[in-house]
Design a protein around this nucleic acid. Sequence first.
DNA 1: AGGTCCATGTCCGAAAACCGCGAGACTTCG
DNA 2: CGAAGTCTCGCGGTTTTCGGACATGGACCT
Lengths: 169, 169
Amino acid sequence: MRPELTLDRLATPVGEMLVVTDAGGAVRALDFADYEPRMLRLLARHWGPVDLTPGRAPDRVRDAIAAYFAGDLTALDRVPVKTNGTTFQKDVWSALRSIPAGETVSYGALAARIGRPRAVRAVGLANGRNPVGVIVPCHRVIGANGTLTGYAGGVERKRALLAHEGVMV
Amino acid sequence: MRPELTLDRLATPVGEMLVVTDAGGAVRALDFADYEPRMLRLLARHWGPVDLTPGRAPDRVRDAIAAYFAGDLTALDRVPVKTNGTTFQKDVWSALRSIPAGETVSYGALAARIGRPRAVRAVGLANGRNPVGVIVPCHRVIGANGTLTGYAGGVERKRALLAHEGVMV
DNA sequence: AGGTCCATGTCCGAAAACCGCGAGACTTCG
DNA sequence: CGAAGTCTCGCGGTTTTCGGACATGGACCT
C-alpha cells in the first residue's frame, strides 16, 4: 500500500492553508489553497504516487499553527516535518529552520552557511521547492539588498508573514 | 520501508538464472546471471530503489522452473508474475503469456494482436525490456521471415529455449 | 549608478536517437 | 524468368540528451 496521508484545510490571516500530515503526525506539506496543484506536484515528486484523504491534522499541529498566527512566534519550532529531497535541498531546508522568527538572511549568506558560498541561485531554487511553507521558514530569506525578491505563495504573503514576525521591510 | 525483495540463483541447462520474488510470492524479475546489471536496472526503473536480499524463492516458483526444464513445458503458466511498466508494455507482456510453448509469433503479428498493427518496432523494444524472462516468453517472438533477430539473453539461448520447446529453427 | 557576465543545482519540455521490424524495390545469379 | 539475398525507408513507444529558466549576487567595466 502507498503511504497514507491526511489533508486538512485551515483558515489563517493570510488565506486558507493546506496541511498534509502522515501517520506519524509529521507535516509532509504545507501550502496556500490557491497553490494546491503545485503542492500536489511537489508531494508526488518526492514521495511518488500518494493516497491523500481529507481529514483533520493532529491537534499538536493545528494548535501550533493557530498559536503562531495568534502571536506565539516560536510555536512552529516544535512541529515535526518530514521532507525528502536531494542532499542539497535537505541541507538548505534544514538550514532554514535555524533562522529564528524576527530575523532574515540573504540568499548568499544562507549559501555560505551550508558550505556552498557560490551556489546562490541554487539556494533560491531549493527555497522555491520547499514543500512545507511557513513552518520551514523560506520566507525569511531575502535579497542581499533587502528586497523581498520572490515567494512561492506570492510576495504579498511574504511581506505579511515577515511583518507579523516583527521584521521591518 | 521499501519493498523487500528476495534474490535467488538457480542452475539451469542454459546457465545460472536470477529470480527475484516479492513478499507475495510473485516473480518480479528473472534473468540470466551474466546480465545481472541490466536486471537491476530494470527493477529500479519500475519499482524505484529496492531492497534486494539474497534468499530462497518460494518452492512453488523453484519447482515450476525445474519442471519446465525437465520437460513439463506448461509448468511456467501457473507462476504468478508482477510487472510495472507503461500501458503499452503491459499490453505486450500480457499478450506474450498467451503464446503457448511450441509456438512462435512474429513481431508484426503480436503488434496486430494488441491492436497496434504498425507499432512493430515498439513491440520489439517492449519485448527487450521484459523484466521476467522465460516465464513471460519473449523468446517465442521471432522475425516475420523466421530468423531469430535478437534476444536480451543472447540469441544462442533463444535458440536453445525454442529447441527445448520443440520448435523447428 | 547601471550594465554584462558568470557560477550553481534542479527541473521541464522539446527534440532526437534508439531499436529484438517488415514491406517493397532492386540486385544478382542460375 | 524466378528465387533468394540486400538495401532503404518508414513505422511508433521510450529513453536520453540538451537547452533554458530560475525567489541571486559579486566582479568588472563603462
